[in-house]
């Protein structure tokens, strides 16, 4: 009676060994983990304004000027610094001044040095027929360091005819941010 029992036990052990040795993880390549890239694309509002004639407080050779700037602290965050690969900035101007304008948007570093300049000429419009300009600046992989080095966005508007005080200039803007997070 004892022999069959030992036989049974040894069969169980054998069976377990067979199971364990045949069981494995096949046809998979776990090293692919290193190739995993998360590439989210974020669409986020940027700045906006509605600028009237009385806010043009400066002057230069080519007209009257209005300027302002804002810090964009998120540009300094790790996910921008390490993983932003491309940024598309889209600006939509609506001009009802009866004067051509020039908008200059600058990305500025913490030490106030200009990293990137976007200049958009805006044609003359009127209250009845606003001039609209839809301008997109694509900052690709080659230039993306300019965004990473920046912390502020400044805007300067020149109204070339100082006498055209009727109307306003509106800006709406957004950014598409393309990330690549790697493991």
């Amino acid at each position: 009676m004892k022999m069959p029992l030992i036989n049974y036990l040894s069969k169980i052990v054998f069976l377990s060994l067979v199971l364990v040795s045949y069981s494995c993880v096949k046809d998979v390549d776990l090293d692919q983990y290193n190739e995993i890239v998360l590439s989210p694309e974020a669409a986020i509002d940027l700045i906006y304004f509605d600028l009237t004639a009385d806010e043009f407080t400066g002057e230069n050779g080519s007209g009257v000027t209005a300027s302002d700037e804002t810090r964009l602290d998120f540009l300094d965050d790790d996910y921008i610094q390490n993983s932003l690969v491309r940024a598309d900035f889209n600006f939509r101007f609506t001009n009802t001044f009866q004067s051509p304008l020039t908008a200059t948007i600058r990305l500025v570093s913490p030490s106030n040095s200009v990293q990137h300049t976007i200049e958009v000429p805006i044609p003359s419009g009127s209250l009845g027929e606003p001039a609209t300009i839809d301008y997109t600046e694509i900052i690709d992989e080659n230039q993306i360091n300019r965004v990473r080095r920046s912390i502020k966005m400044s805007v300067e508007i020149i109204r070339h005819d100082p006498t055209a005080i009727e109307g306003s200039l509106q800006l709406a803007s957004k950014g598409f941010y393309y990330f690549e997070f790697q493991s």
Binding site: D45, I47, F49, E55, T57, D68, T70, D73, S173
Partner: peptide, 20 residues
């Protein structure tokens, strides 16, 4: 909810801090 940052010309220039 937010629309982004409004510039007021010349404004306070503390837009970001106010937004945050």
């Amino acid at each position: 909810q937010t629309h982004g940052i409004e510039l007021l010309f010349p404004g306070t220039q503390e837009y970001w801090d106010e937004w945050e």
